[in-house]
Structures are given as structure tokens and as C-alpha cells.
Simulated scan of single mutants.
Amino acid sequence: MTDAVKRGRPGYDRRGLLDAAVTVFNESGYDATSVAALAARLGLSKAALYHHFSSKEEILETALGDALDGLEGVLRQARAVAAGDRLAEVLQGAVRVLIEQLPAVTLLLRVRGNSDVERRALDRRRAFDQDVAAIVQAAQAEGAVRDDVDASVATRLLFGMVNSLVEWYRPTGPEGAEALARDVLTIALDGLRTR
């Protein structure tokens, strides 16, 4: 049986239950949300929740994996782009992932390493940051962006801006993913480009 077909009570499929659980984790905090409270909030029995996921940790791991898979996919796609355009491609792709997976990325940005699942997610996030810093370094070496800013610092600042979107971006707002990605590029790269 596929995840899309396998349904629990009251009509949640695995994806729907995951999305609802991530919303609860973001509202109440992962650590503060017990399985019993999660099941009650979703109108499920604990058995119905366990029909789809073996534990609260599996729900967290799946959600964090979705966010990280999306970000890592951006890096894979950027490899096919000319080196000078790679940083712009990564920034645009990261904005798109954030918007498409806003709840999961929000959850990712809130983990602190309190469990093995969180530590593994943080390791993957650090690897992503290191890969982006290498892209910044390559762009600096080509003269495409300023080289008077440390690549790791530039990466943190750029992704600080991108990650801040989880705090204020609303999908129902006036600006869609593509327009927002262009705005991020304008602000980020026009401040880094050489004159």
C-alpha cells in the first residue's frame, strides 16, 4: 500500500498527518509536544498516529529530511549551472524550497541538537553551509563577487536573510516565490558584486 492510499482515522494519510504534526511542532515546540498531546490535537488516538509513524522522532526525522533533501537538491541542480551563476542559483533555489516547504524548513531552523535526529539534521545543515561557502569562495576567485568578505561570513549573512523569511513570509501575501527569490538576489548580490 502506498502512503497516499494508506489512511488512518479520521482520514489522515501519512503526508497529511506529517503536515499537521509539523504545524503542531512549530506552534508548541517539538520538545514540548508529547505523542498524547499530538494525537489529541489531531483528533486521533495514539494507535492511529502509530499506524503511520513508529514514533514522534520518526515524524521529526521525516519532516527534517524533507527540508534538507530540498536544500541538498538545490546544490545538485546548481552543479549544472555555469560557475559564475552558481551562487545566484543556490540562493534562488533555497528561497523556493523555503516557500514550498515553509513548515518543514521552519522546524529545521528551530532544532537545537537535543536528540540524535536533531544532531544528524544539524550535521547535514552544516555540510550544506560548507558547500555554499565553497561556492562563494569560487565566485570570489573568479571575481564575480567581492573577496574582501570571508566566504563563511558571507554565507551566514546570505542565509540569515533567506532563513529570516520563515518569520515573516506568508504564502497568502502579495509576493510569490519567484518574485521573492529575485528580491533576495537583488539585495544579496548587488551588495556583494564587484564594481
Rank of each mutant, 00 (worst) to 15 (best):
Val145Gly: 15
Asp3Tyr: 14
Val132Asp: 00
Gln92Arg: 10
Ile59Lys: 07
Val95Ile: 02
Gly84Gln: 08
His51Lys: 09
Leu68Ser: 02
Leu165Cys: 13
Val184Tyr: 15
Ala179Arg: 09
Ala82His: 13
Ser164Gln: 06
Glu27Gly: 12
Leu192Asp: 00
Glu58Trp: 14
Arg195Asp: 13
Trp168Arg: 12
Leu180Gln: 00
Asp148Asn: 06
Leu75His: 11
Leu185Pro: 00
Leu71Phe: 07
Leu42Asn: 11
Arg195Met: 15
Leu102Cys: 01
Arg76Lys: 11
Asp129Ile: 15
Thr186His: 12
Gly176Pro: 01
Ala78Ser: 06
Asn26Trp: 09
Ala133Ser: 15
Ala94Gln: 03
Pro174Gln: 05
Ala88Asn: 15
Ile99Arg: 12
Tyr50Val: 09
Ala94His: 06
Leu102Tyr: 00
Val22Leu: 10
Ala144Ile: 13
Ile135Leu: 13
Ala94Ser: 05
Thr62Trp: 13
Val90Glu: 09
Arg15Pro: 06
Glu118Pro: 11
Ala82Asp: 09
Val153His: 13
Gln130Leu: 13
Gly11Ser: 06
Arg125Trp: 03
Arg125Asp: 06
Thr194Glu: 14
Gly113Pro: 02
Arg79Asn: 09
Ser28Met: 14
Ala104Leu: 10
Ala37Pro: 13
Val35Cys: 10
Asp150Ala: 01
Glu118His: 04
Tyr169Asp: 06
Arg124Cys: 08
Ala88Gly: 12
Ala78Pro: 00
Met161Leu: 15
Val117Leu: 03
Gly160Met: 10
Ser54Glu: 07
Leu107Thr: 10
Ala4Asn: 07
Ala20Lys: 05
Asp150Ser: 00
Leu38Ile: 02
Arg125Gly: 14
Arg120Thr: 11
Arg112Cys: 13
Asp147Tyr: 07
Asp148Gly: 05
Lys6Arg: 14
Ser164Gly: 08
Arg125Met: 11
Arg110Gly: 06
Val184Asp: 08
Ala63Ile: 10
Ser28Phe: 07
Arg182Ser: 15
Gln92Ile: 11
Leu165Ile: 09
Asp129Glu: 12
Ala134Trp: 03
Val136His: 03
Glu61Thr: 02
Ala134Gln: 15
Leu180Asn: 00
Glu100Asn: 09
Ala179Asn: 05
Arg124Glu: 04
Leu91His: 15
Arg7Ala: 08
Ala47Gly: 12
Asp148Tyr: 11
Leu185Ala: 00
Val74Pro: 01
Pro103Gly: 08
Asp131Val: 09
Leu189Thr: 04
Arg9Ser: 05
Thr2Cys: 11
Glu72Pro: 08
Gly160Lys: 11
Leu102Ile: 02
Arg126Asn: 05
Leu38Met: 04
Val136Ile: 02
Leu75Asp: 07
Gly16Cys: 03
Ala127Phe: 13
Gly160His: 02
